[in-house]
Design a protein around this nucleic acid. Sequence first.
DNA 1: TTGTAGGCGTTATCAG
DNA 2: CTGATAACGCCTACAA
Lengths: 334, 334
Amino acid sequence: MKPLTQKKIAEIAGVSQPTVSRILSGGAGVDEDVRERVMEIVNQNGYQPHAMARGLRTHRSDTLCLAVRRGRKGFAKDPFYAELILAVMDTAAQNGYHLSVCSSRTAGGERLFYDALFRSNRVDGLIILESLEHDERIERLREHRFPFVLVGRYDNSPDLFTVNNDNVGGMRTLVRYLFERGRRKIGFINGLPDLTVCQDRLLGYRKGLEDVGLAYDPALVCEADFGEPGGRRAAQRMLKESPDAIIALDDIIGLGALAAVKQSGRRVPEDVALAGFNDSLFCPHTEPSLTSMRLNVQELGRQAAEMLIARTKDSTLAPRQVLIPCEIVERGST
Amino acid sequence: MKPLTQKKIAEIAGVSQPTVSRILSGGAGVDEDVRERVMEIVNQNGYQPHAMARGLRTHRSDTLCLAVRRGRKGFAKDPFYAELILAVMDTAAQNGYHLSVCSSRTAGGERLFYDALFRSNRVDGLIILESLEHDERIERLREHRFPFVLVGRYDNSPDLFTVNNDNVGGMRTLVRYLFERGRRKIGFINGLPDLTVCQDRLLGYRKGLEDVGLAYDPALVCEADFGEPGGRRAAQRMLKESPDAIIALDDIIGLGALAAVKQSGRRVPEDVALAGFNDSLFCPHTEPSLTSMRLNVQELGRQAAEMLIARTKDSTLAPRQVLIPCEIVERGST
DNA sequence: TTGTAGGCGTTATCAG
DNA sequence: CTGATAACGCCTACAA
């Protein structure tokens, strides 16, 4: 049982195929009789347009793509991904778009990535996650004027479409919050410094220190591999400096830090206060519960998708940089 | 700067377009001179085939789709999703496939779901998550002989392709494990019973009780909404029966249960042992740390994708039902 | 070994 | 208001 095509519908209805096309695309100027006859057949048999055929003509795929950079430890299990993917998917679907996800790592290397994707007309636009500071892909996309939205900052470029958590603001808030509770040696466990999210949070950390008049001490900053073990090792190193508070790049690193601090015999929060980022599901349930910055991932995904869709439909649209506010969730660890 | 097409390459190289096609598809029987001349141009300019045009001819999209049923509370944040999506994506990419994700909920309702998807030739095959016991979509797909793989059991049908965690086996193992540690009133907090995963784990629970010679007591089973609050409320109800052990459908429900048990003044594990499912990231870090069943989500995704790809390429392939083993991870809560 | 011809299912531009 | 006709880019006979 082959799928119904416009041609077949036309045969059955005794009209020409272009007429069917006109009716299906809701175009005006069709005889009411003919329209009804055709729609009857369509409704009976559940016609679905052939996406490829349509795309070939229209040069549109009605598909967005979410590009994920992979390979960091622990990322696969990070619920941030799931939430973002689902938020983007929902928004896309609401606007009649499909969503595909891909990894620039598994797609045969960065070099081939964009080619295979945007030159193949497979997707109308791209949402890029985890962008590096200088990303070859982004320059290529830019050159080719291919619609894309960055989740994460990039080079401060005001000529790009970006959506981002307010990482700088969030970190500043955290530093001030800890300062106001009497902490004076506030450490920061960062991630790998080539990711802009890490750079931004470090920047926020420094600005936060400035805000409250504390000096920046490089010894109180260290870099962790992603994942809980990375956080644990980093915290062990940092504890030699005897901080009275530690901010972790994210909650997972925070988990590791929490374990390390407790293992060292120090009490949380009495000896060392601890705060994470993301307000992960488990934060209320650690011992003590973990203070964290709540991101609005839902909103992040929604705005990214809407921005991309708008850009896709109007190539003259002016770039915007959107910051999604985050919010401190105070718990036992501080 | 328009993308390069075979036609243009042909013009430049001074040959016909089908010749270019033949060369690009690696076909034999081409003059070495011509081949080199064409490949030169291709390599210089980075030709990418137009996915739509190719798909229109070949009736293949080289795209798999992961269908997610949504709307349950807490699901969006479940890292299971992220891990599975990424595993499927990686496997798909390794085999030259793209991956799209969609939700049958947001796609305009169940009724339209399959039509819009598989009749539009947009995807070559479907991986379906969270299937209900009787799922209209599945019957439709079956009728139309459209390639699909179920993640999760369905009706025990041996004529379907399914991949599943060994939920029954895992639960049996958990029950026996608790029994061997002296527990005799083992409760089970289930999820919503229309999901097969919940049915399977309940079945495993009952079989486990049978294995060790304990009677099944309906009062020791209750249903929770998904999410941590759901688990908390369910555990509060169950505690009235004074169980000496509780198994939660998953770790998130387990989190809620843990909170409820502690709040009731009981000690874990002395008064009530507690075990979850999924071995989530946070399990080592609750207080006490949470014993859990570790699923092999990576493997689950990989096998699902490989199975679907195989089925896509060979419509005569015999259905298989694969169970992915899971493994108990013992921690402080038991 | 290569070119010509046809068609995949649509949409868009013309005449009529 | 409707029907030819062309085109989107590619693949596959078939003919040269």
